[in-house]
């Protein structure tokens, strides 16, 4: 059995390297470091202050490394009443889920970490449903009132948000005629799908904010009510993991939004440049997208859970179904892409 394992590893070494080291882990960690630094500096400017200025020169780019070292050096505190196995398990597993979602995103022609045989969009959504499950596990395992309330809120929110998001992307699937993310990207070479799918995009974007749990939908981890929601009891390196999971989740969903509606790795159709096509464009779009998301996070108040659920079921769901009907009609009369 060991032999079989070794030969399996030998045969698939390249794939494992791609998933685990480069671009997989390296890219994700690089993004997390960049996103945290960027969030700190950018939000500081919006709040008319400076942000980190000491670690790593004037721009403070080493601040996260310093924070991470501080957190790792701290003691791991397990609450006495907690289920220690599940408590630790959830903190280890949680960042893996969004990381697995990123593996399905095409970054450039031919650069895709895991090609899910033509159904990658469906696989993406299938993996994403694991997130609330692990969230409940962490909330339950910590055995604290604040964490369990946060965990249940997470479930309400994910169900209310994910169904409209999925139905909105069904519109994209119908318009493109495929489940495959790579093909969806290829079909946007001449026109991004935000144009024919504008209604779907609105629905997707609001649901998307719920999926990444940012203001106005940071209801599960609402600091003013629940301290840090399901993450309240985590400390040290486990807390670092949780923060990392949040940022990877943000990365995964933002990449999906770019892939579905903003042409993925394609440049703008007007001045498409074959040289720059690929990673450059997707990273540029990523930075613009997270800039807008960060601005949104401090522009608005947080919704209540009942308002968020009501928004999901009463407005987003009918709109997403209307979008599917519209897409079918457009496809019937205009012909697809």
């Amino acid at each position: 059995m060991i032999d079989a394992l070794i030969s399996f590893v030998n045969e698939n070494l390249g794939v494992l390297f791609v998933i685990a080291i480069f671009p997989g882990l390296a890219f994700i960690l690089g993004f997390v470091i960049f996103a945290v630094w960027y969030q700190r500096k950018y939000l500081a400017r919006l709040m008319i202050r400076m942000g980190p200025v000491h670690c790593g020169g004037r721009m403070g780019w080493l601040q996260l490394i310093a924070d991470a070292m501080k957190l790792v050096a701290k003691e791991l505190i397990f609450p006495r009443a907690a289920n220690k196995t599940l408590f630790l398990f959830a903190s280890v597993v949680l960042p893996v889920i969004p990381a697995a979602m990123i593996a399905l995103i095409p970054f450039a022609p031919g650069l895709i970490i895991y090609d899910a045989a033509g159904v990658s969009l469906l696989v993406f959504f299938a993996i994403s449903t694991l997130f609330p499950v692990v969230s409940v596990i962490r909330g339950w395992a910590a055995n604290n009132k604040f964490t369990i309330i946060g965990a249940f809120r997470n479930i309400y929110l994910d169900i209310a948000g994910e169904i409209p998001v999925f139905l909105a992307s069904v519109g994209v699937m119908i318009w493109a005629g495929t489940y495959d993310l790579n093909e969806i990207v290829l079909k946007q070479a001449s026109m991004w799908f935000i144009v024919p799918q504008f209604l779907g995009f609105i629905v997707f974007f609001i649901g998307f904010l719920a999926m990444i749990e940012k203001v106005p939908f940071d209801i599960p981890t609402a600091e003013t009510e629940l301290i840090y929601g399901p993450n309240t009891e985590y400390s040290g390196a486990m807390f670092l993991n949780m923060m990392e999971a949040d940022y990877i989740n943000l990365l995964a969903w933002t990449l999906l939004m770019i892939t579905l509606y903003f042409g993925g790795y394609n440049g703008p159709p007007i001045f498409a440049d074959p040289v720059l096509n690929g990673v450059f464009w997707i990273l540029l779009k990523l930075i613009i997208a997270i800039t807008i998301i960060f601005t949104i996070t401090i522009s608005y108040a947080r919704l209540r859970i009942d308002q968020a659920v009501k928004m999901g079921w009463n407005y987003l769901l009918p709109l997403s179904i209307l979008n599917i009907l519209l897409t079918l009609a457009m496809k019937f009369y205009l012909g697809g892409v």
């Binding site: 400017r45 919006l46 709040m47 008319i48 202050r49 401090i298 522009s299």
Partner: peptide
């Protein structure tokens, strides 16, 4: 309004 504050100089 929030976005416009990015252009202000810090008060700290």
């Amino acid at each position: 309004h929030v976005a416009r504050h990015a252009l202000k100089s810090p008060v700290t």
